[in-house]
Nucleic acid binder design. Sequence first.
DNA 1: CACACTTATGAAGATAATGTGAAGATAGCG
DNA 2: CGCTATCTTCACATTATCTTCATAAGTGTG
Lengths: 226, 226
Amino acid sequence: MSKLILVVDDEKRLRDLVSAYLTEAGFQVVTACDGREAMFRARDAKPDLIVLDLMMPEMDGYQFLKQHRQERNTPIIVLTARVQENERVIGLEFGADDYVCKPFSPRELTARIRAVLRRVEDKQRTDDMLRASDITLDLDRRQCTVGANSVTLTPSEFDLLAALMSAPGRPFTRYDLLERLNQALSDTGERVIDTHIKNLRAKIEPNPSEPAYIETVYGVGYRFRG
Amino acid sequence: MSKLILVVDDEKRLRDLVSAYLTEAGFQVVTACDGREAMFRARDAKPDLIVLDLMMPEMDGYQFLKQHRQERNTPIIVLTARVQENERVIGLEFGADDYVCKPFSPRELTARIRAVLRRVEDKQRTDDMLRASDITLDLDRRQCTVGANSVTLTPSEFDLLAALMSAPGRPFTRYDLLERLNQALSDTGERVIDTHIKNLRAKIEPNPSEPAYIETVYGVGYRFRG
DNA sequence: CACACTTATGAAGATAATGTGAAGATAGCG
DNA sequence: CGCTATCTTCACATTATCTTCATAAGTGTG
């Protein structure tokens, strides 16, 4: 099964070169010349890996990275022009999986691609999923599925549900749950949780007034039915 | 509650990168450059998790692993240079909890760390249970089971029953029991207990008028039949 | 068996916890 | 900067639990 690579760079010469070489190496390739186009390509082609130049007009690499990560968890190899430690770190912190410095040899690039793909395959064995009843949480992609339907949760809602599902049957106090939301615990009242739970229930419960998944434990907090 | 990670690697560059990234991700970090130093750090800092490079001078990863395991059971993630199956297996056999192959992305590392920490926490949650006759109290989940049926108790009822079951056969005065309910002892009359006991009996006794579990000790209080 | 005292019980009022909708604040994005 | 989604706050409705109380029933003692 041949892998699909998305190459994002504003220089046509480079796109063609890389493209030719990767095709030769047995990959399928699609290209994009800026971040905007890349978003489209990534959405419909769903590549297995993305090679991304950080320096681009229109929408630069960082923006693309950040935005793309909200949708998918495609491994990304960053092309960084300067060999500065700085940029590498930044690239990696933005969520890249590896980087290659320009100028680079096509051989090196394919080697890295293969390495990253292998790693990712490994990882998928241990992919972070929470399942309980007929709810599935994909912790990496931050996606939630109830039965057959995919449900869109806000960040807080997702984190809450993840916390509850991490230990089905165990009740969490509102304070416990607050901590999960704000790593640096804010001074927000505990009742925020109530509201989030309400909204969560509205999204995942067939009948919110009689919760099947998220039970309230009077005087304690909430728990995921286990 | 932020977790403390010990990063052991001989390459300063890598230590700094990982360190920066983990800090960013909300962990606290201490580092060591070889096995010898790692032993010291592990002893006094008592990290929640250790990231360990297997290839090091002075005292290599295997030695450290082995020696450290004799003292503590800290979860360990191994950094392994080559992608050889060999080394993975060895690492795991030595007692590592997971491995990450170099070169790795910080994202992957933090994901693994979170996964391992979560696993370990789950394990540590060794639910303490109170059992007597055919009643079970799960103190963590605050669940009560009588025979095969799960019974829903109010906070007071649960705490009362937990108190009684903590010392089957021993009678508790109403005052004793009141203290269990209101840490800051309120001025509520001792008769409240009677009512709670009544409600409790209604929930757990097959025949409340002839209590099989909660006996009343005339002139003293109540006790759980032991 | 009468008496003083303790406990059981049911009902009702008081209190506290949670549900809910709407509106104000905030943050992220274009 | 304005827009939107999200987060937060708040007031009020609703419910669960707690507490009180009056009365009935039970217990031990002389």
